[in-house]
Nucleic acid binder design. Structure first.
Lengths: 342, 342
DNA sequence: TTGAAAGCGCTAACAT
DNA sequence: ATGTTAGCGCTTTCAA
């Protein structure tokens, strides 16, 4: 072994040098065999391969990449939470594309914490990923400018990246929320509550804007007390619903800003008497099989992920300059809950 | 720049050498500043830092690791499909532990294809991950033996690894399925159908064995026609249910082997008249809010993921030899569907 | 067909 | 406090 004393508990990986020595050939010959290059007699190649198997040699791609100065064939994916069904579907789509390009995927969840996201992003860059697919937090991302300038491809998905103009794939948040709200208005609802995510989150703000716009377009005033923005927390949702559905002038319908909120609301409603109409932004599994099937404005997370990843590889393959901004359409799926009359 | 001609479309990353030259200091001084080592005057350090920011220098961890011969601080996670809620929860738990240890996570989905899993695993190993958390396919994994011998920590989760005895975290599959089946028997059911995943999948086989055992323990014979094993495919489920629920002696209850199958069955049942009792293996979101809430044998994917990842790091921190086999308990959650009488 | 030497970006060990 | 040299595991270049 190359590293002298081979402590039992501290195994050492054999290197090409070890293989070369054991096979009685030069280093370059081993390299040729490992990489399937021409110029090695079948006899020699066989001997080298035997030693490789016997020693359990596996090429160190880190060293290879260092020498070649080439791309690492790895891509980083940064999102809020892999366990959120929206992101896990997006994630799978990204992974599929990455795999099709023979690359490896590094994944990290920011948990909506920009410091954590930053640490992950820089960690990925220090590992020299070829590119990054990011669902950015709302903090400034200027720190990624040097990376982008150094050739790390950058694509945002689901949200834009504050402080940096890069390729971006977004859902049609505002229009989607407007369509969902308009749908409720069409059923005759006038007092429509809106439960959205924390307002500093781009999608939450956009969707709220869509709600306001639909109300305005229909000429119906919005009572600010109908609006509740915040992380989807069961207890919080309980308080909000008690407020919105109680009192002398309760709302008769609810628009929910994301699938986590919708599910939290459904769970809370199950324990209450009121059955307000409900439209959720973002589809979710079993929405169609609930006691009252849930009307949603569906996104297409797989399409968003695929689009973002393909954009990334197009950049890596040298597609030229201006940052693209792609909007992915949403669509209303009426299932029942959104058609409940006031 | 170190690489001479700086083509516009081909950006080159500055290296420590570049920083050193631009700052008019030696290479090692830059290294000291970058790594926060002592022995640099504040004056010099400031100048170096200024150049670093200006050039957008970022240390190449690949080179660093190569030189140090140290661990890479990265871990690979291989599972069947990140978009399956069971695995996405497991995945998040693994990621959490990995992050707590300051490491990075590479993720790959095998899609139940052992060739693909092998390619991913070896790719990870070529990148010199410190360890691998794997949900193994049913193929032989002897090819990982050299990696394990070379010091790559290996932990299996959800399924054991054929051909290699390593640390393993499993759910209590057999007992869980037996408890679910016994629950149905207790309600008076005798003709109980079993819909499981492909029989070469460890968990599918174990759970089926649990079903058989419960039936045998109760002294009730199993008609082989009640058993249907295969990938959860909507069309397939449709045929199976038509067969099980039609005919002169239909089953009165169903035991489902995993959450994908359960959901597929629920979807199909929604379009049919019959309302057989139903127990699903593995819990899923909204199971409690369906028209008939679904009784399940719940696993704890987060606990399984956390346990596996912690085991991995304990190995990396030098915990000694024998492979551990940890069983994570399942528990029956009665919600309604499993309490429907025959 | 084969291999010796140089060097990728970095750090360890040793100067100064 | 700072710099020089060697070398991690590999590939590239060039010579034999």
């Amino acid at each position: 072994m190359s590293a002298g004393t081979d402590h039992p508990g501290v195994p050492i990986r054999p290197t090409m040098k070890d293989v070369a020595a054991a096979a009685g050939v030069g280093l370059k010959t081993v390299s040729r065999v490992v990489n399937g290059e021409a110029g090695v007699s079948e006899e020699t190649a066989r001997r080298v391969r035997a030693v490789i198997d016997q020693l359990g040699f596996r090429r160190n791609d880190g060293a290879r990449l260092l020498r070649q100065g080439a791309r690492t064939g790895s891509v980083g994916l940064l999102l809020e939470d892999v366990a959120d069904p929206f992101y896990s579907q997006l994630s799978r789509a990204v992974e599929e594309v990455v795999r099709a390009h023979g690359a490896l995927l590094l994944t990290g969840s920011s948990a909506e914490d920009s410091e954590r996201e930053r640490a992950l992003a820089l960690g990925f860059c220090a590992r020299r990923v070829d590119g990054l697919v990011v669902v950015p937090t709302s903090a400034d991302h200027g720190y990624l400018a040097p990376e982008a300038a150094a050739g790390t491809a950058l694509v945002c998905v689901d949200r834009p990246m504050p402080g940096l103009d890069v390729d971006t794939v977004l859902a049609d948040n505002r229009a989607g929320a407007a369509i969902g709200t308009a749908h409720l208005l069409r059923q005759g609802h006038r007092r429509i509550g809106y439960l959205g995510d924390a307002p500093d989150i781009f999608t939450a703000a956009e969707r709220l804007a869509g709600y306001r716009q639909a109300m305005a377009d229909a000429g119906h005033p919005v009572d600010e007390s109908w609006i509740a923005m915040g992380r989807p927390d069961p207890l919080e949702v309980r308080f909000v619903l008690a407020r919105l559905l109680g009192g002398p002038e309760p709302v008769t319908a609810l628009m929910c800003g994301n699938n986590r909120t919708t599910v939290a609301v459904l769970r809370e409603l199950a324990g209450r008497q009121e059955r307000p109409a409900l439209v959720g932004f973002d589809d979710f599994e079993l929405a169609d099989l609930l006691a009252v099937p849930v009307t949603v404005v569906a996104q297409d997370p797989a399409l968003m992920g695929r689009t973002a990843a393909e954009l990334l590889f197009r950049r890596l393959h040298g597609e030229p300059a201006p940052a693209q901004h792609i909007l992915v359409r949403t669509r209303l799926i009426p299932r029942g809950s959104g058609e409940i009359p006031p």
